[in-house]
Design a protein around this nucleic acid. Sequence first.
DNA 1: AGGGGTCTTCAAGCATGAATCAAGGTAACC
DNA 2: GGTTACCTTGATTCATGCTTGAAGACCCCT
Lengths: 237, 237
Amino acid sequence: MNQGNRILVVDDEERIRRLLRMYLEKEGYAIEEAEDGETALRLAQQEEFDLIVLDLMLPGIDGMEVCARLRQTKATPILMLTAKGEEVNRVQGFEVGADDYVVKPFSPREVIFRIKAILRRSSATAFLSKELNTSNNIVFPHLVIEHDAHRVTAGGQEVNLTPKEYELLHYLASSPDKVFSREDLLKDVWNYDFFGDLRTVDTHVKRLREKLNRVSSEAASMITTVWGVGYKLEVAK
Amino acid sequence: MNQGNRILVVDDEERIRRLLRMYLEKEGYAIEEAEDGETALRLAQQEEFDLIVLDLMLPGIDGMEVCARLRQTKATPILMLTAKGEEVNRVQGFEVGADDYVVKPFSPREVIFRIKAILRRSSATAFLSKELNTSNNIVFPHLVIEHDAHRVTAGGQEVNLTPKEYELLHYLASSPDKVFSREDLLKDVWNYDFFGDLRTVDTHVKRLREKLNRVSSEAASMITTVWGVGYKLEVAK
DNA sequence: AGGGGTCTTCAAGCATGAATCAAGGTAACC
DNA sequence: GGTTACCTTGATTCATGCTTGAAGACCCCT
């Protein structure tokens, strides 16, 4: 868990702000919101944040501008949100000092990963600590997930997963033993603007189990159904 | 990882300084900035840096001059930045004591490689233990990349690559097994002022595979597509 | 400077692989 | 044994990657 890093979320769409607040608070961050550039700048000046999530498209002062002005006085890390197809000059974004950017529509999961990555980096440079803990690997008795290599190994053998299958497994694996409802999974693993059938989750679970089972029945049986509730990845007892 | 080497960045353009700071801090270096020759000289005299990145074109005392004066008292390694089209005599630069030079617009990646190479060289003389690691060669079962010679050998036979093809391959090879998205690749391998189509990456990958394949299908098949994510250079298992 | 060749980029169409959803079957609970 | 939730399957739709060609930038050589 995080020790309550403070994050400022800047977006003109309320549902986006609410969405991010929800997810980030779940992760233990303290959230503040701003719906335009002026407010964002004011808040950022008078309070200390550990990170700012900044939409590019804002009424009044746009994100690029906010970013540039902010950089004159503060070094707060900035994560940019850009809409797909928006004629964004990415380089401009970086020049202006954004640390990373995410394209909408994003999956909540992705945003959280990027935020964690940025915060890890910035605290790493502060303490000159080695990036030992940075490895994104998740290791269970019969299941290894190497995130950088995007590789899953079950019972010592590599398993080929499709993107969704991989994301689903990775999501379950990052909170082992926790049960997620189908709604949870759809909300977190899929894009925020996807409203699909709950049964879609079933299908992916099925194929995930199938692929794991071809290689290691132990790994496959880690994905357990909690009747009337949802799914979880169960770590052997 | 680097143990926080200290680097002084000297350039009159703020966006260049910021850009370099961003990338270098990500690599774990501690950055200080100067925007003119006078400041640079003052800072370089009163503090100890492990390396100085120095723009040739500066208001007041120019880079060449700074370099020459610095060399009278310090042996700090210097990496020169020169603008394209600037009729720079490279030899002049070396005479004056620069250790290496990079032409603008540079790709962030290139600068980082040069910096690491210089630091490795200079620390190699201090610690003989590192001597072994000094070569910039990357060696895989069917693929050898000799960076100093800018030469690629696949299956024992030399392959002729264009600059971009080479850089792409080298970048992938320096983090084997790690998956890079097309965005990542554009960001790191292309120049800092390039804003292009993601599909451009595909084209280069295609031709890279083609050239490697003419000589060694094993080498070609090391460049693997991770569906929905990006590309990686996969080391045989 | 001018011309030829190379490298890079980008667009368009095609090929392939993955995600979705509906419908019927099956297992768990009471 | 009935009811509810879950699993399975396959067709359809959708997303992504690959290939090709052509245009333009760039470089080198004369």
